[in-house]
Design a protein around this nucleic acid. Structure first.
Lengths: 221, 221
DNA sequence: GCGGTTATGTTGTTTTTACAACAAAAAAGG
DNA sequence: CCTTTTTTGTTGTAAAAACAACATAACCGC
């Protein structure tokens, strides 16, 4: 695992020199941990002042309500980060962070990112600007998620999500990071109704799929 | 209108001295504009590198899809800001910003906020930290909005929204910033179904309401 | 106050979704 | 390879939401 390469492709460290990264990690009190599958890294109500960056594996951001209704807010893959907003606000977490598979996570002290450091790291100001961009991007992603949720029917939600995923992966054929139950939790619909809607959509020639691999045809609305 | 007092209570300027604000405004290329009701300040697809702060009135953040389905993402009141993420990402806007009533808006150049300035403004670093906090807060608000949307039934969505509003306004009795159609657009449900659900909830003794004024009773789930 | 306009509430019908139960297919683990 | 477990798909029924149409109430300009 090439940590430096992963970090250079991350939003937070973009524009920093590869040489500088080990020094920055030290300055930001970086530490890595390994977690097994289905491990709760952050629970609802927890406090944290560390941001997490996924070095291997992937994690899910989830919520649970009184009646055990689970909802999946987001999927975070390699090179992506989580808990930025949590670490910056000193408020209890609204969500849980749970590993979707075996993971290696890098934790960084957010306060060290935000405040200028006394060691005069060259790239410190770059980090702060990146932090602003990172939060802005996360913001727009949440907005996009809201776009899917505001769709009134299961079919529209599926099309909204799948077409945004096709766009993100720059291909009509793409793989989603969710199984059916997780996809239903993500779109806030009922799994079996969604399954049946998917097969109708396939019958209508809108798309093809096989497990996690989907192909959108051009007729989509 | 006491601009300095409004700004001091805003997240972006918190911790800055009142004396310094006029100087900062100049440094950030601040400009104010007045808008009539129902005026589109930012349209979907627009670019902007200015953040807006509401000095009087209020604005709505909205989206429209192909079939004219309107959805209301948020309401922004006096002292609150909008377009932070838009201004920070150089990407086209996912949403529109439309005045809900007659408004005065202060616009600030985001790049001047983020990059250190050559005039050596004392509070410049405070501003950058505030910007990070502001984006984090906006983030958590979007998360809260998602919480409402993930509720499966109209009744649950109403309770989720109304109880969060009661908490925010620190009172069992409170006024919402939406009329019925806007509330339906905000919660992504159908207006008349929502109206009828509200009257059922009133019959069940869960709440009382009269137009925009609601009272939640303690039995709420 | 009066007519026009908009906002809100009500009701019945159609459509969609949630739920439950189960069948089939795939994956996991010896 | 075979068994067990998990995932996915299917179907019928009950519940809920969307829709449409209308009644009533509040608001606005004159």
């Amino acid at each position: 695992m090439d940590i430096v390469r992963i970090l250079q492709s991350s939003t937070l460290f973009s524009g920093t020199g590869g040489d500088e990264i080990p020094h920055l990690l030290q300055c930001l009190e970086g530490r890595t941990s390994d977690f097994p599958r289905d491990y709760t890294i952050i629970d609802e109500g927890d406090y944290s002042d560390e941001i997490g960056i996924v070095l291997s594996g992937s994690v899910h951001i989830t919520r649970h309500d009184f009646w055990g209704n689970r909802s999946l807010v987001a999927n975070i893959g390699v090179g992506e980060s989580f808990a930025e907003a949590l670490a910056c606000t000193a408020r209890p977490s609204e969500v849980s962070v749970i590993t979707a598979e075996q993971c290696t996570i890098l934790f960084l002290n957010v306060h060290k990112v935000i405040t200028s450091c006394e060691h005069g790291c060259t790239y410190h100001h770059t980090l702060i600007e990146n932090m602003v961009r990172l939060l802005s991007q996360r913001n727009q992603e949440l907005m996009k998620k809201i776009t899917h949720l505001t769709k009134r029917s299961t079919r529209e939600k599926l099309l909204s999500y799948l077409s945004s995923e096709a766009q993100r992966q720059q291909s009509q054929t793409f793989t989603i990071p969710f199984d059916r139950q997780q996809l239903a939790d993500y779109l806030c619909v009922e799994r079996s109704a969604m399954s049946s809607e998917l097969s109708k959509m396939q019958a209508d020639g809108i798309l093809d799929y096989q497990r996690r691999e989907f192909t959108l045809h051009h007729e989509e609305v």
